[in-house]
């Protein structure tokens, strides 16, 4: 329930930021009668209405929970700290992969990324992990560049 209040606060913050950015749009009445800000104003109003609606829903849930003297339950169990750290590590690894894709090229960066991630999530099977990563990356590189005509970066392999 506390997380729902956090969502409400975030929504209001986003709506205010959106309104501020909307006010920066120069109003050119010659383009259309209500101007370019009218539609974004509707979206701003929608964001505020959804925040109010959600806070009412959360209040009702809280009331129902207090009536039955049962502590309000969260819908999902929080991920254990270890899993949270694991997911954060995956996100950081993905971020590093994206940073390396142009300088190292698609083949090298994807291969390193896949070997690293499969080592973590399919542990102890080095040969299978390395072979799968290699076949997949090289196969897809040729499929995209040679068959489908979609260019992918060569990076360090650009001889």
């Amino acid at each position: 329930m506390r997380r729902d209040y956090v969502i409400v606060l975030c929504t209001i913050a986003l709506a205010v930021g959106y309104l501020y950015e909307t006010l920066q749009i120069p109003s050119l009445d010659t383009v259309d009668p209500l101007g370019p800000r009218a539609y974004p104003y509707l979206i701003f109003a929608g964001l505020i209405v959804s925040a109010i609606w959600l806070s009412l829903e959360t209040l009702q849930k809280k009331k129902a929970a207090s009536r039955s003297n049962v502590p309000a339950q969260e819908t999902d169990a929080e991920p254990e700290g270890r899993h949270g750290r694991m997911l954060a590590a995956v996100v950081v690894w993905l971020g590093l992969y994206y940073a390396a894709i142009v300088p190292l090229g698609f083949v090298v960066s994807s291969f390193v990324f896949l070997v690293g991630l499969t080592a973590c999530f399919n542990p102890g099977k080095w040969v299978a992990n390395v072979l799968t990563s290699f076949i997949f990356v090289v196969g897809f590189y040729f499929l995209f560049t040679s068959v489908l005509g979609v260019p992918l970066t060569k990076g360090v392999l650009d001889f």
Binding site: T11, I43, G46, L47, V49, S50, A51, W53, L54
Partner: peptide, 8 residues
Amino acid sequence: AKGMLSTM
């Protein structure tokens, strides 16, 4: 309410 928020 969360559906509406998602839409917005």
